[in-house]
Write a protein that binds this DNA or RNA. Structure first.
Lengths: 132, 132
DNA sequence: CGGGATCCCGCCTGATACTG
DNA sequence: CAGTATCAGGCGGGATCCCG
C-alpha cells in the first residue's frame, strides 16, 4: 500500500503530487505497449484467463514469436501473468492472468470506455487539424 | 458507438467485447507516451489548466524543446489542448486543456489509482522475478 | 520567446534460422 | 511446441543551430 493518503478523487494535484510520476509513466508505457494490452485483453476474454503459447500467438495476429515471448516475459516479470511449464513432449506452456493482472482490467476498462465515448471527437479534431 | 456491428469474435484486436481495438490501442499509445501524460498532468494541476510554452518546459523537467513542441502539437491535433498565439513581441503562446482533455483525466486517474495501490506488488514481483 | 530544420545514435522490433 | 540467437531496418528522441 501507500503511505501518504491525501485522497482527493479528481484533483489534478492529487494525480501529479501524490504518486511517483515515474511509476505512473512506467505503467502507462507498459500499457501503451501494443502487444501487452492485446495479450492482457486476449487473456481476459479467454475462458479461465488461461491459454498456451500457440493459442496466444493465434489470438493476436501479427505478433511475432519474438515479441510474444518478450511481452509475456515482461508481463510475467510484472506479476500480471503466470507461466506454467508442463514437462511433456511436445512441450506445453500455459499463461494465465494473475489476480493483479485482472485487477488492472478495471482501470483499463475506464480508458476503453473513454475511447468509446470520445474517440469520434478525437478523430474529428484530428481531421479538422489536418485540413488546415 | 456507431461502427458496424461486425463483431469478429476471433479478431485479436477485438477488445473484451468493447469497441474499436485499434482506437483503444492508439489511445494507449498516446497515453503511454512519456511526455504526453506529463504534459496533460502538468496542465491539469496548473491554475486554469493553462500555461505558456516556457512554463511547460520548466514544469516538465528533462523534456527537450523538440519533444515539447511535437507533443503539444499532437495533443492539439487530438483536441486535448488548445494553442493560442498572441501577436506580441516577444511572442507568447498559451496552451490549455480542452474539455475533452480534462475528461481524459478521469480514466487516467483510474490508472494512477491502480498504481498507488498495486505498484509495490509489481515492484516486488519484478525483483522476485529478477532474483531467479 | 517559441519554435523549425538537421544530424545522428540507440533501441525497439520484425524476419529468419536453429533447437530441446 | 515453445522457445533462443542473430542480423538488419526504422524511428523515437536528444543535441545543436538558426530564425521571425
Amino acid at each position: 500500500m501507500n503511505n501518504t493518503n491525501k485522497t482527493k478523487q479528481l484533483d489534478p494535484a492529487y494525480v501529479c503530487g501524490h504518486k511517483d510520476p515515474a511509476a505512473v509513466r512506467e505503467l502507462l508505457t507498459k500499457i501503451g505497449d501494443k502487444w501487452s494490452i492485446f495479450l492482457v485483453l486476449s487473456l481476459a476474454k479467454i475462458h479461465g484467463n488461461r491459454a498456451r503459447f500457440s493459442e496466444l500467438e493465434r489470438s493476436v495476429p501479427g505478433i511475432s514469436q519474438r515479441m510474444l515471448t518478450l511481452t509475456l516475459r515482461n508481463l510475467e516479470r510484472d506479476g500480471l501473468v503466470t507461466r506454467e511449464v508442463f514437462p511433456e513432449v511436445p512441450p506445453r506452456v500455459e499463461y494465465e492472468l494473475t489476480v493483479l493482472g485482472k485487477s488492472l482490467l478495471r482501470p483499463l476498462d475506464g480508458l476503453v470506455e473513454w475511447v468509446s465515448v470520445n474517440w469520434e471527437d478525437v478523430k474529428k479534431a484530428q481531421s479538422n487539424f489536418d485540413s488546415k
